[in-house]
Design a protein around this nucleic acid. Structure first.
Lengths: 144, 144
DNA sequence: TTTATTTCGGACAAATTTGTCCTTTATAGT
DNA sequence: ACTATAAAGGACAAATTTGTCCGAAATAAA
């Protein structure tokens, strides 16, 4: 469904949001430990998230990553996915045709559209914030 | 969503079924031309589909690929996808966790489950045969 | 101002996926 | 039997994704 990079990106975003809510800034090492991801690779993804204003970074001692309050409220899963994987997941043709559309659809166009639209809608309505709730309560997990 | 191999595999299956219905056996060259895919790579995928009894192959002059009547009736999209990509698409965790399940779910588990179940259901109920209909009538396409 | 800490960014490496080429095997027709 | 045709299969190559390493830049604290 998503690339590894995107999976790590989503997990990192949720973790950073969870920590930011209680006022804690976290660094690369803490993040990759918390979500069980390769550190250097995760660092690249964090750069991408930073450039896309999904998280904020600060260098130096006591630096690290935070998600500002406004972002915690507004950032949706779709923003994270788009920053890393683009919109191919729910825009592209299910059979890989470049010019597949309503006028010249592939054989699975309509059937895929239903699934893709549901995915798109889910990504666009799910906030990172709400995904931190179960985490805090120990009902959901970001590794294993 | 699916790998390139799987996309080609689905397109090839639909094309072969369409031709088989009117009693025509097709070869690698015709298939890759009809679905606009790399010939040698497509040949590999056809081998895979053959091994999984989705299509039948015959060597020699006038040989090629066909889908037998029984398969045309019974083969679902899910069979083709499973033969090439496995069931990771609708079984695996959306965030890539190895041990994500109802008891220890990732934060997006439930939301993803809805989308994945719909995808799974669509793949398991859609026959290759029904996908050939629009193709025959010129309403749907396998390339571009 | 020096040092320690942390992100940034580029180059590189490994792994996987995608794709090619060529030889072998089967088979139909002559 | 010979030839032409077509799939099977193995080895290899290119491209992409995943992942590592290391020096540069920023910054806080001593």
């Amino acid at each position: 469904m998503f690339s590894k990079a995107c999976e790590y990106g989503i997990r990192a975003s949720i973790y950073i949001a969870e920590q930011s809510i209680v006022g804690i800034r976290v660094n690369q090492k803490q993040i990759s430990k918390a979500i069980d991801s390769p550190e250097a690779f995760t660092a690249k993804i964090l750069q991408l998230l930073t450039k896309n204003n999904i998280i904020n970074s600060e260098k130096g001692p006591s630096g690290g990553f935070i998600m500002v309050p406004q972002s915690i409220e507004k950032i949706k899963l779709s923003h994270v996915v788009f920053a890393i994987d683009g919109d191919e997941v729910y825009k592209g043709c299910g059979l890989g045709l470049k010019k597949c559309n309503e006028k010249k659809p592939c054989p699975v166009h309509d059937k895929f559209k239903l699934v893709r639209d549901e995915l798109k809608n889910m990504l666009e309505t799910t906030t990172i914030k709400e995904l931190t709730h179960g985490l805090k309560d120990g009902f959901t997990f970001l590794k294993r």
